[in-house]
Design a binder for these strands. Structure first.
Length: 949
DNA sequence: TGGGCGCCTCAGG
DNA sequence: CCTGAGGCGCCCAA
């Protein structure tokens, strides 16, 4: 094997004394040995016709072809390990001693990979006594000194120490560049300190000992504090944590040896000179011969077509055929059968006249189903890839608009498809035609995507919303699920088309025939679902709810999602840094109190520290056998005077704020708009509420001072302010209305403080001069009512014995007998129907209401009591939201509705229009329902969300 | 090694 | 009562 290298290039000093001018600009150093192992595990197994395993060889050949065809590489070397033993074994005999032998399927691939290197006419380099990493280091440094850019093709963390000016890494399997930032993310220090961190942390796989008890995280912290390993070891006595200090002092030599093991040698002698690495054209015949022997058919056709292109630029392969071949031919002869799901009457639209014919038919039909295919689930950032249509059941069409083929420049052409702007310009009149109904499934998504291309889809019907209104939470409302349930039809799974996990591809890379079958089916199934569900609306008396709430709301939400809200990244980063620093201080303190370091973020470890090691009382284990360490538990311990749980509470608050809010929100800022665009789920809750994801903007902190700092980062554009409008006590008002409680209704009509009133009625104290604690208790009871109250829950909430809580509830029922009547009536109804209803007739299903288990049944009963209140409130704000944009336009106001947080709406308003907008919004919101108590809306204005709230 | 998943905890209404 | 997200820890597969 070693003769390969030495026969290709005669050995010479790597760096000649007088440097001649080099044409070389960019050197790629491929970690051949590393690649083989990674590819073997990452890629599907594959065998040649004769049974020889070749999966890693294929991955390797693919990677080289890509490197040579798609990069500016003008010098390439493939570096291999020569043998198992290197100079490092002389330093530390256990080094890499317990490495398991290579899997048997991998062994025959080692020589084949070297053969591939030869076939590509690239130098393969190895050197006895040195690892591939050392050779890479030697070349990288030599090239750096001569101003040549270096890319190390590897994801080996041991090579990260080399990242520097002009030296970067490329993960060949993830196709991801690794620069100083990525290194810092992994090791917590700059590349030039990576060896120090590795020396401390060690590596169990390679048997690098490191210092016991120190992992990467701690090592980075220490190096950042003391500068480098020598400084740290010299000053180890200053370290506060006793365990850590002792370990460092005792194992200082181990750390030094470890550093020698991990530090790469960059002066490996007797290597071929850099000049020898310049790319030389491969002998096409030899490469073709090699690929044919391995039976790499796709690769072969790519290389042959490239050769053909070079020979005659006109002789390009038919693009679609190439795309199909790539996806459907099973590499290497291991037959991978393609599912034969092709429906004969699904067609591709690849010509304008065909598109025009479909548009004419859809217009004449007056209704059709439409679906879009994109590159991601994020409607605001994804790319539109294609559109599918269905006018009649049993037929459908897919219009590809942005399909690509991987390695485009090698295959010589893209799939044939109509220019996207041209096609959308033709579709726009149809999609906006007021006489043609557009039917979609979760059409809001498509509306956002098409809206970004200047198309306002209307009028529209949405099968997901129809299903939601009809069947609520009885089942999910995904199209696949509905197709199976209602049509007994198993749809093609997205995962079958695009794969899953790290091997998932985006839809634009799906070959057209597969894309057609998947996409056209979506549209066609949607059409059939519509014909099934729409008539049920009338039969089941849900037309009004759908027509006045869900249907008009969808485009309004789409507009809100597209609008997004401005978030100040500088402020969030400042907060993140502040939180981070305070977390570090707290962590040190917590470790000191515990007497040892542990992961504060691990409830399991925390529980062990508190209850096993410190023997604090009150340790209760849950069903997984871990101690409960929730806030209530820690608060009790803190109140007993224990410092550690108190610090952990502080730590948890800051950790939550940092990771969930400060850090995550910055990541979510859309670079194109500078704003954060949440996605509202319209059909995901059992009560009719919306939910918000990616990011969830319905749980931004407000209750604590530290949390409110996050809110301050939500700001308005210049010349604008944020306006908040929230319903006051809407669920309690609904309780008064639905349960028909005269005294509560009177109180709301007169604008009396409702919690104070409850307190005076239940506890018999005058409202004047009331103890705030008494009012607080009454408030908790009022909330308890909304949640379907239990003595247990109320006791928990107030921190009082359950018996006392039970007495409060009894007193409450005494004062307001209508409440108990309502609760009994509601439970009865739920049992009879299986559902309860909101004031607008929305059915909220309560599946566990007849459960034989009393605890589960009681839970369902509380759901039944809460759902009409929560659900009616949801209906009301939805009705208001559906009306607001039109009302604003009509009034000539420019305000934009941005967010909904269950009982609150956030607007971005021109400063000059604040008064008029507030008045209008209040009028629409308060008029969204007419019930026996007034609806009251409070508004607030400010440059940020905290001020406006 | 890392993706998937359940659990815990905690943010909002 | 209704939610969604992040971190941890465990299992399993490529």
């Amino acid at each position: 094997m070693t003769e390969l290298v030495t026969t290709i290039i005669e050995t010479a000093a790597i760096e000649p004394g007088a440097t001649p001018p080099l044409p070389m600009r960019h050197l790629y150093l491929v970690d051949g040995s590393g690649f083989i192992f990674r590819a073997f595990h990452a890629l599907p197994p594959l065998t040649r016709a004769d049974g020889t395993p070749v999966g890693a060889v294929l991955g390797f050949s693919n990677m080289l072809l890509k490197l040579l065809g798609e990069t500016d590489a003008d010098a390439v070397a493939v570096i291999f390990d020569a043998s198992r033993y290197s100079f490092r074994n002389a330093i530390y005999d256990a080094y890499k001693a317990q490495r398991p032998d290579a899997p048997p399927e991998l062994i025959p691939q080692f020589p084949l990979v070297r053969e591939a290197t030869e076939a590509f006419n690239l130098p393969g380099i190895e050197s006895d006594g040195y690892e591939a990493d050392d050779i890479i280091a030697t070349y990288a440094r030599a090239a750096q000194r001569r101003g040549i850019e270096v890319t190390i093709v590897s994801s080996d963390k041991d090579l990260m120490q080399l990242v520097d000016d002009g030296i970067r890494m490329l993960d060949p399997i993830k196709n991801k560049a690794i620069g100083p930032d990525e290194v810092r993310e992994k090791f917590g220090v700059a590349p030039d300190r990576v060896v120090d961190v590795q020396a401390l942390a060690g590596d169990s796989v390679d048997n690098v000992p490191g210092v016991p008890g120190i992992g990467v995280k701690t090592a980075a912290e220490l190096i950042n504090t003391y500068g480098d390993l020598d400084q740290l070891l010299a000053r180890a006595g200053e370290i506060k944590q006793p365990k850590r200090r002792e370990s460092l002092i005792q194992h200082a030599d181990l750390a030094r040896v470890s550093r020698e093991l991990v530090r790469l040698k960059d002066d490996v002698p007797d290597l071929p000179p850099l000049e020898a690495l310049a790319v030389r054209p491969a002998d096409p015949n030899r490469l073709v011969e090699f690929l044919r022997t391995q039976n790499f058919r796709t690769l072969l056709s790519r290389v042959e077509s490239r050769n053909a292109n070079r020979a005659a630029a006109t002789a390009a392969l038919a693009p679609v055929a190439a795309a199909d071949a790539q996806a459907t031919s099973a590499e290497g002869g291991a037959a991978a059968p393609m599912p034969a799901a092709t429906a004969a009457n699904y067609v591709l639209i690849q010509d304008l006249d065909v598109l025009d014919a479909w548009i004419a038919r859809a217009t004449a039909a007056g209704a059709f189903a439409v679906d879009t295919e994109t590159t991601s689930l994020d409607a605001v950032t994804c790319e539109l890839v294609g559109v599918s249509l269905s006018i009649e059941p049993g037929e459908g069409a897919y219009l590809p608009l942005a399909h690509k083929v991987e390695g485009l420049d090698l295959t010589g052409g893209a799939p044939r498809q109509i220019d996207r702007d041209t096609a959308l310009a033709r579709l726009k009149p149809l999609l906006e035609d007021p006489a043609v109904l557009k039917i979609g499934h979760n059409l809001k998504y498509d509306a956002v995507v098409l809206g970004r291309h200047g198309i306002q889809v209307a009028p529209a019907d949405d099968t997901m919303l129809l299903s939601y209104v009809l069947d609520g939470h009885l089942h999910g409302h995904g199209m696949d699920e509905l197709a199976l349930l209602h049509l007994a039809h198993k749809t093609i799974a997205f995962a079958d088309v695009c794969g899953t996990g790290k091997n998932q591809i985006t839809f634009d890379l799906v070959p057209l025939d597969r894309a057609r079958d998947y996409a056209a089916e979506d549209a066609e199934v949607t059409l059939r679902l519509h014909r099934l569900l729409r008539p049920r609306l009338l039969k089941e008396r849900q037309v009004a709810l759908y027509e006045t709430t869900e249907r008009p709301l969808a485009p309004v939400i789409a507009a809100m999602e597209r609008a997004g809200i401005k978030v100040d990244p500088v402020e969030l980063k400042r907060l993140s840094r502040d939180f981070g620093e305070r977390l570090a201080v707290l962590e040190t303190e917590i470790h000191r109190l515990a007497g040892r370091p542990f992961n504060v973020g691990s409830p399991k470890q925390l529980g062990e520290v508190l209850f096993d090691e410190m023997s604090l009382a009150g340790g209760k284990k849950g069903k997984t056998g871990a101690y409960a360490t929730g806030a209530e538990v820690l608060e009790v311990l803190a109140a007993q005077g224990h410092a550690l749980p108190a610090r952990v509470l502080d730590w948890r608050q800051l950790a939550k704020l940092k990771s969930t809010y400060a850090d995550a929100l910055v990541e979510q800022i859309n670079p194109a708009t500078g704003r954060v665009h949440t996605s509202y789920a319209l059909a995901s809750t059992s009560t009719g509420r919306l939910s918000s994801t990616d990011p969830n903007l319905q749980n931004i902190p407000v209750r604590t001072e530290e949390g409110r700092k996050i809110r301050r980062a939500f700001i308005a554009e210049d010349g604008h302010v944020l306006m908040s409008a929230d319903y006051s006590q809407i669920e309690l008002r609904l309780a008064a209305h639905v349960a028909d409680i005269p005294s509560l209704k009177d109180a709301f009509r007169q604008g009396i403080d409702i919690h104070a009133l409850t307190a005076s009625q239940v506890f018999g104290v005058p409202v004047e001069g009331m103890d705030p604690q008494v009012r607080r208790r009454a408030k908790a009871i009022n909330f308890g009512i909304i949640y379907g109250i239990s003595g247990f829950g109320l006791a928990q909430q107030l921190g009082i014995p359950q018996g006392e809580a039970q007495a409060y509830i009894a007193a409450y029922f005494e004062r307001y007998p209508g409440i108990r009547a309502y609760m009994d009536r509601t439970k009865q109804l739920a049992r009879e129907q299986g559902y309860v209803t909101t004031i607008f007739g929305r059915r909220c299903w309560v599946p566990g209401i007849k459960d034989s288990n009393p605890a589960r049944r009681a839970f369902a009963e509380r759901q039944a009591i809460n759902a009409p209140l929560q659900g009616s409130a949801a209906d009301i704000i939805k009705r208001a939201m559906a009306r607001i944009p039109a009302a604003l336009t009509e009034a000539g106001l420019s305000a934009t509705m941005l967010l909904q947080v269950h009982d609150e709406l956030i607007f971005e308003v021109r400063e000059a229009e604040v008064e008029a907008t507030a008045a209008l919004v209040r009028r629409v919101m308060e008029g969204a329902a007419h019930i026996s108590v007034p609806l009251v809306v409070d508004t607030g204005v400010g440059r940020d969300w905290e001020t406006a709230h």
